[in-house]
Design a binder for these strands. Structure first.
Lengths: 235, 235
DNA sequence: CAAATCTATTTGTACGACAATATAGTTTTA
DNA sequence: TAAAACTATATTGTCGTACAAATAGATTTG
């Protein structure tokens, strides 16, 4: 009994189909979609289900519907680029080096800033959560355990910054990068090689030293980039 | 003939109503919404319109619907905090100092990083756009002209960073801050006092000096914060 | 007591009808 | 002729109803 074996609902499937078409470029900004009646016929779904899907796409900034004129694909600058689905569709249709670079750049901006903020604003419980994640990393027996604890560590740091906007942003970025196994710089043999660097981040946050926390996280992020360049990236 | 006098559609109104209730805390995470039939009756709308609204709220991470169980408010960590509507509802219901501080903090993280990236990646046309905005600032005759050109300048810098994720993020943050007139540090009498600082940003980007661009923007942002603290904030 | 079955509730999908709106064309008017 | 007012018409928006699908909870059964 797989935990998520429920077949996807129709409207969700339509959201995915149209989303991919738009983000993938098959439907360009300015293009008009077929009328709801027509499109529903083409996709073999009811107009009700189609409309629910269109509203969702509208909520993501991808399309705009107006009476008489119909629905049109909006310009890219209106797209909610930080929406998880939109990111996913970009991944599915254009996993280019440039796109990955954008994600990595965002990560490199957020994490050092978050570490600095965490050093200033973290409370005791949040520090404890970071410490627990660090312990789990130290005791990790294999790559999977390490990866899990590593993700928790970074998530805990973000949480300790006490800024929901920042957390939400990192959440999206990290999830997307996770899809490419690009979050942690995983050395082939010694997967724990970055443990000391993580300790420095933790220690700086513990001592409430924002500059040191920022620098330590910056170094970690730089290492990650160096590693990426070594392996030549993916796409 | 006001440009946007069209009465808001029903499903949009429902999205707003429920969105405010949830973000405002009247409906807490974990709470169950009434069944669609009931809720439609309470709001005096058809089930169809209500469902379209619920799908939109689901797309924003606010609620989750399941058969038999009904719809429930999701935990805050799932909310799309960077969605323009969600930000708007937070504004409408909880314009607290803490929330504004989160927005300002995000801005302070993004803009210096964006200036640095722009210095490295901008092309000629993007530089020209920044220059044009700067010129408009220099020639601004009143506060409104200045504010408009100022917004264009910052937007142009973000655009020159050539990272759609960053642009999208800044767009949302800046729009929200604009709602509070908190984007630019507007001195009461000399509204052009930050012009030289803007020039430094432009000049560094022109000379492709990332460090100087970052520092110049950082200083601008710091000034803005200092000014905020002087005036004691708003909410 | 555990497993299988049934039942009732709620969302999901489909269909049909009409209202509201905005475009494009048509007619009227100055 | 040009501008203004009107009219047709395509398309989305809203409503209501019926039924399908899923699933939590009660019931039966071994």
């Amino acid at each position: 009994m797989p935990p998520d074996a429920s077949q996807p609902k129709v409207h969700r499937q339509v959201v995915d189909q149209l989303g991919r078409l738009i983000v993938g470029g098959s439907l360009a900004p300015g293009d008009a979609l077929p009328s709801e009646e027509l499109l529903a016929g083409q996709l073999v779904v009811s107009r009700s289900a189609l409309r629910e899907a269109m509203k969702v796409l509208g909520a993501k900034g991808l399309i705009e519907s107006r009476q008489k004129t119909g629905a049109r694909v909006r310009e890219r600058r209106f797209w909610h680029q930080l929406d998880a689905d939109v990111l996913g569709w970009r991944f599915a249709t254009m996993p280019t080096q440039a796109f990955i670079a954008e994600l990595v750049e965002m990560r490199e901006i957020i994490e050092p800033a978050a570490a600095a903020a965490a050093a200033q604003k973290r409370d005791r419980a949040q520090l404890a959560t970071i410490a627990a994640a660090y312990q789990a990393m130290a005791q990790a027996g294999d790559r999977d355990e390490w990866a899990k604890a590593d993700a928790e560590f970074h998530s805990a740091v973000l949480n300790a910054a006490n800024n929901e906007l920042m957390s939400s942003l990192f959440n999206v970025i990290a999830t997307a990068l996770h899809g490419f196994f690009l979050l942690s710089a995983r050395a082939s043999d010694d997967f724990k090689y970055s443990l000391p660097q993580h300790f420095k981040v933790y220690d700086a946050i513990r001592k409430r030293s924002a500059p040191r926390a920022r620098m330590a996280m910056q170094k970690m992020v730089d290492d990650s980039r160096r590693h990426l360049q070594h392996t030549g990236g993916i796409a």
